[in-house]
């Protein structure tokens, strides 16, 4: 991951509230529509002189971040995880997420925040993180590139403690239908037929799953809250947060000691309420109880994959 040398630092006094960020995003989306500049065409802020869109060379930072243990406990309960003196990886993501969002609603950020599709995450959880540690967060966007369905971008968040990076996560988002000037979209790759593995578990997700997650980690994106709020944004129904699914998976699959890496790719949304069949198993050739594991979620009794991922000890 690139260093900070070429990026301008914007220090935020504290972690921004996501409610305000979503409001700003709605305003920004509305403004771009009123201005007649639709995603996928035309010139807009962030475009450089030769018409190619560029990511702003900025990095948003919060220098001091403390963990509220009540919130940590609520997170651990929500995920069916044990209440222990150790920050779960998705909880850390939740702490850093508003800073990453701040990057994406920055005036210079070329893609519309609302309507972006969460494609995947890759996280290096470099070491155990204790709830009492004073953390810092920095986030930036990088690698804007074409996707077969539009444009995709990596939003990187790095959490530090005592001057060392302890957690680094890359979230990849897709802006559907957006063409990057001068760049051609790749062919849509052949989609392998999904065959469900043997299930090892089942999650029954209530209609309020998204509200419960938002209540803990603050991600009040309307597409996750209620059927009505999701339909207002063009969704069929409201869907589970991708990071809720990741959190549930990791509650069972994360190693009990040491650092680890994990990743998740989202194949299709989980509509709420809904039932997800789940599988977690040793990745090929693994025998160590806490070796690399692969996990998959799919729609109950159907061949529709929702997500797949892995966890590997470091």
């Amino acid at each position: 991951m690139s260093g900070t040398a070429e990026r301008r630092c914007i220090d935020l006094p504290e972690v921004p509230a996501l409610g305000g960020i979503y409001a700003a995003a709605v305003k920004k989306t509305a403004a771009s529509r009123i201005g007649g500049v639709l995603p996928g065409g035309g010139r807009r802020r962030g475009a450089d002189d030769d018409g190619r869109w560029q990511l702003p060379a900025v990095e948003h930072r919060v220098r001091r971040l403390r963990v509220d243990t009540g919130r940590l406990t609520r997170y651990q309960r929500l995920m069916g995880d044990t209440v222990r003196e150790d920050l779960p990886s998705v909880f850390v993501h939740g702490l850093a997420f508003p800073v990453a969002m701040s990057v994406m609603v920055d005036d210079g950020f070329p893609l519309p925040l609302l309507g972006m599709v969460h494609l995947s995450n890759r996280v290096e959880h470099l070491r155990r993180i204790r709830p009492g540690e004073e953390l810092s967060v920095r986030a930036w966007a990088e690698d804007l590139r074409p996707h077969f369905a539009g444009a995709q971008v990596d939003v990187v968040a790095e959490v530090g403690a005592g001057g060392e990076a302890v957690w680094r996560g890359v979230s990849t988002y897709l802006a559907k239908g957006v063409d990057l000037p001068g760049r051609t979209r790749p062919e849509r790759p052949e989609k392998p037929v999904f065959t469900a593995p043997t299930r090892t578990g089942q999650w029954r997700l209530a209609a309020d799953t998204g509200r419960a997650y938002a209540g803990v980690l603050g991600d009040w994106n309307p597409i996750h809250l209620t059927s009505l709020s999701a339909r207002a944004l063009g969704m069929k129904r409201h869907i589970a947060h991708g990071m809720y699914l990741a959190g549930r998976a990791l509650a069972g699959a994360a190693p009990r000691e040491g650092g680890y890496e994990w990743g998740i790719e989202f194949a299709s949304p989980v509509f709420l309420p809904g039932t997800v069949d789940f599988s977690v198993a040793d990745a090929e050739g693994g025998a160590d109880p806490y070796g690399t594991v692969a996990f998959t979620g799919w729609r109950r009794g159907a061949s529709r994959e929702h997500f797949s991922g892995y966890v590997a000890p470091r």
Binding site: G80, T198, R199, T200, G201, Q202, W203, R204, G252, F278
Partner: peptide, 18 residues
């Protein structure tokens, strides 16, 4: 089962089939 969300019968159904 608290960790899997599957009932004992559903678990056994997997084993029986296997």
């Amino acid at each position: 089962e608290p960790r899997t969300g599957l009932s004992m019968g559903e678990h056994q159904a997997l084993t029986t089939a296997a």
